[in-house]
Nucleic acid binder design. Structure first.
Length: 513
RNA sequence: GGCCCGUUCGUCUAGGGGUUAGGACAUCACUCUUUCAAGGUGAAGACACGGGUUCGAUUCCCGUACGGGCUACCA
């Protein structure tokens, strides 16, 4: 690639960043890094009606959490700013004037109401849906049908107008998509897109082309929903006389709902019980509140890895890649063409893998806020050890609490069904004796405990199954969990004995009933 | 409706004119084990359909079906 690689992630700040958008950001980032290029963030806030306070910060926070820091963008520096489209209004106006002068665009005075009425009428006739195009523009109110004098008068009078692209008749637009190959559109199918809205702001199509050109974007990597309007975009580049520097396009497959019916959307989070946003979002009202991958207990590394493989793969059997490794192996030609369903189980599996790879100390730090929320504040040393014992059975960070709350607070509920099955009064004496023996131990480490308890079982003619399960329930309340001896070691002698004594007393009461 | 894009195990996918169609998740079995996991071993499981082209098509071409996207003064 002789040309300097410059890519951009251009979200619209209309709410929390969708997970599909995050993947687009990731692919842009990976492509930039792979080719020693530049990754820009551009905020596409041309629609003031849909603008949402806090959305831009949310986007930046997401990129920071995932390690996808932009090289250029609002607040990140760069020579091509401003990077917020709302701050570039004059630029678009200037270029719109240029297009008008070249005869590639025209003024249109049809109001929204008039257009709606026209569409409705056409629909009722059962004909094709109305398009503002080469045929219909001849009967609309615009600078093509009105005299120059009339147009001048209307503008001078302050009548609202839009500027539309004059799509050439009977032409063919073709471009090479890096993912899909050649894509072709007939201009007769394309409508005269609005370029500048009545409020003076540009539409996506206008702002996008000008900014990509001015910011010297080499590759446009975006979602498949943009494929149908790419014909207009190519037309625009040509209208500006920028045909020689049209960027390369790569349209990404969509991320579909878990059931495959349509693209993943905001509401699917609650519907399927899955996260669809990277981070928690708190909007203005109670309904506008969503947890994110982070709040579900995902590690950023896992989210990156999972997302990278949704629609792409390196062509080998390896599936675990760090961001750095992805930067090296990523390539656009390995992007799959078909949409990919969101598979939450796979996401959980990735997270499980990364939890295993994370060291116990770091896990302890990640877990602590959750414990604090429960009013608990265990010692660092204890917490680190517990993380070590628990991590191989945790898929999400929240599982540390789900599976191991009993480590941090007293047992809330004993598995009485199993106690009833296993406990008998005869065992009481054995347990009292065992408690005394444990109490006499000098050190309290897992191997020592294991040989001690096993010897005790043998000496007293007992079986492992008679003692160990009850010991486990005494300590944890449940049959599930890490090794009994490791657990005892982590608890230490006094806590271990306290728990066993309390449980033994309780078990006696149960079977007496 | 129109336009554009797509279609390999349930899911994510590899592959590509001649393969026992490979891997991963999930599922099941066995194993390990004091439990639950993890690990190990194994099982089951796919080329949407119909025509071509070809000695041969899952692979190339054309249709059909199905799915998705777009069809705003939203992005």
């Amino acid at each position: 690639m002789s040309q300097k690689v410059r890519v951009r992630f251009a979200p619209s700040p209309t709410g929390p960043l969708h997970i599909g958008g995050v993947r687009t950001a990731l692919y842009n980032f990976l492509f930039a890094k792979k080719h020693n290029g530049v990754f820009c963030l551009r905020i596409e806030d041309t629609d003031q009606a849909r603008y949402v306070e806090g959305a831009e910060d949310y986007i930046k926070e997401t990129l920071a959490w995932l390690g996808l820091e932009p090289d250029e963008g609002p607040g990140y520096g760069g020579e091509f700013g401003p990077y917020r489209q709302s701050e570039r209004k004059e630029i678009y106006q200037k270029y719109a004037g240029e297009l008008l002068k070249r005869g590639k665009a025209y003024y249109a005075f049809d109001t929204q109401e008039e257009l709606d009425a026209r569409r409705k009428m056409e629909a009722e006739r059962g004909n094709h849906t109305f398009k503002y195009d080469a045929y219909s523009r001849k009967e609309m109110k615009n600078s093509l049908t009105l005299s120059d004098e009339e147009v001048g008068k209307r503008i001078a009078a302050g009548e609202p107008y839009v500027i539309r692209l004059l799509v050439p008749e009977n032409d063919t637009v073709t471009f090479e998509d890096l993912v899909r190959g050649q894509v072709t559109f007939e201009t007769s199918e394309l409508d005269d897109k609005v370029l500048i809205k009545a409020d003076g702001m540009p539409t996506y199509h206008m702002a996008n082309i000008i900014d990509d050109h001015l910011m010297e974007i080499s590759h446009v990597i975006r979602g498949e929903e943009w494929l149908p309007s790419t014909g207009h975009h190519v037309l625009l580049y040509k209208a500006f006389g920028w045909a020689d520097s049209i960027p390369h396009f790569a349209h990404l497959p969509l991320i579909l709902k878990p059931n495959g019916k349509g693209k993943l959307s905001k509401r699917d989070g609650a519907k399927f019980g899955i996260p669809v946003f990277p981070l928690e979002w708190n909007g203005n009202n109670e309904l506008d509140h969503f947890p994110g991958f982070r709040e579900y207990g995902f590690l950023p590394e896992a989210v990156i890895n999972f997302l990278a493989f949704l629609g792409w793969n390196p062509g080998t059997d390896e599936e675990l890649f760090t961001l750095e490794q992805l930067c090296e192996v990523f390539s656009l030609d390995k992007i799959h063409k078909g949409g990919a369903r969101f598979d939450f189980e796979k996401a959980r599996w990735y997270n499980h893998q990364y939890i295993q790879q994370t060291d116990d100390g770091e896990l302890a730090s990640l877990i602590r806020p959750m414990l604090k929320a429960h009013g608990l504040n265990p010692s660092r040393d204890f917490l680190v050890k517990v993380c070590g014992l628990l991590k191989e059975r945790c898929h999400l960070l929240s599982d540390f609490w789900e599976n191991g709350a009993w480590f941090f607070e007293e047992v809330k509920e004993y598995d009485l069904e199993n106690v009833k099955k296993r406990w008998n009064t005869e065992l009481k004496g054995h347990f009292d004796k065992l408690i005394a023996e444990l109490d006499s131990m000098q050190s309290f480490d897992a191997p020592g405990l294991e040989s001690k308890v096993k010897a005790f079982i043998n000496e007293n003619g007992l079986k492992m199954g008679q003692v160990l399960p009850l010991l486990r329930i005494a300590l944890a309340g449940t049959m599930k969990g890490p090794g009994v001896f490791e657990t005892m070691e982590v608890f230490g002698k006094s806590e271990t004995l306290a728990r066993i004594k309390k449980a033994v007393a309780l078990f006696g009461g149960i079977t007496d009933q």
